[in-house]
Computed example of a mutant assay.
Amino acid sequence: MEIYVLQCLSGNEDQLRKRLVLAHPELAEHVHIPRRHMKIRKQGRHFTKEYILFPGYIFLETEHLEKNYLESIRTIDSALRILPDSLHPLPLNRGERELLSRLLRNGEVLGSSAVQFDTNNRIQVIQGPLEGLEGSIVKVDRRKGRARVRLDMYDRTFEVDFSFHDMKKQNSADVQE
């Protein structure tokens, strides 16, 4: 299966998905909008909020980008183009496809990663969406429980924050109780 990237107006990802699936019901399981849960602390209260991983982009998984799909996409107002350009759409390359597949392997909504910090304060991912991305981590905020990761797609670089929880902190809290 190939994966094509559709660019749309930011905030209209769900609308584009609905309209595309309405026109082509067979695509229902093949249109992806990866999301992530983030831990937020506001006014001393903690909660989790869901964000789109790549705002303004949705991913279409298909064997062939059929002409009728292209025509449907062109008629949807919020759809801007198929990357790299609508006249010559190209699927993600193998590395980008593997990255997206790894991120989506547990569903479209990415949860928190379990991590530990070694004696040199380097992050070690035990499990979760950050697994295998340690080399792409550009910033870690231990207090907020976030790691900023640099992801490359279609010669563009995205920096995305992911949530994590420190297993050592969690285990030491269990011991103190």
Rank of each mutant, 00 (worst) to 15 (best):
V115M: 04
T119F: 07
L80C: 09
T62S: 06
S86A: 13
K168T: 09
D141M: 07
R41C: 14
F158K: 03
V109H: 04
L90F: 09
S163L: 03
E26M: 08
I73F: 09
E26S: 13
E131S: 13
N93H: 11
L151W: 02
I82L: 04
E131K: 12
P55K: 02
R36M: 10
R102L: 14
D141I: 00
F59S: 00
N68H: 14
R19F: 09
K42F: 12
L6D: 03
N68L: 13
L65H: 08
G135A: 07
N121L: 10
G44D: 00
Q116N: 13
Y4P: 09
V31E: 00
K49R: 11
V149G: 04
R74M: 14
I40C: 04
V140M: 11
L80T: 07
D152R: 15
M167G: 04
K39A: 12
G132H: 02
P89Y: 00
V5I: 02
A173P: 02
N120M: 11
K42Q: 13
D161T: 09
R122Y: 13
E26D: 12
I58K: 08
V140P: 10
L92P: 00
L80M: 14
G145A: 13
I52R: 06
A23I: 04
V140W: 03
R97I: 11
P34Y: 04
I76Y: 04
L151S: 02
R35C: 06
H32S: 11
K18T: 12
E177R: 14
I3H: 06
P89M: 03
S101D: 14
Y51W: 10
L53K: 05
R41W: 14
L20W: 02
S78E: 08
L104D: 01
K144T: 08
G132R: 06
H88R: 15
R94I: 15
R19M: 12
S172N: 15
L53N: 06
V149E: 01
E26R: 14
I33K: 02
S72V: 08
H32M: 12
L60F: 02
G135M: 00
A147I: 06
I40G: 05
L100S: 05
L133H: 01
Q176R: 14
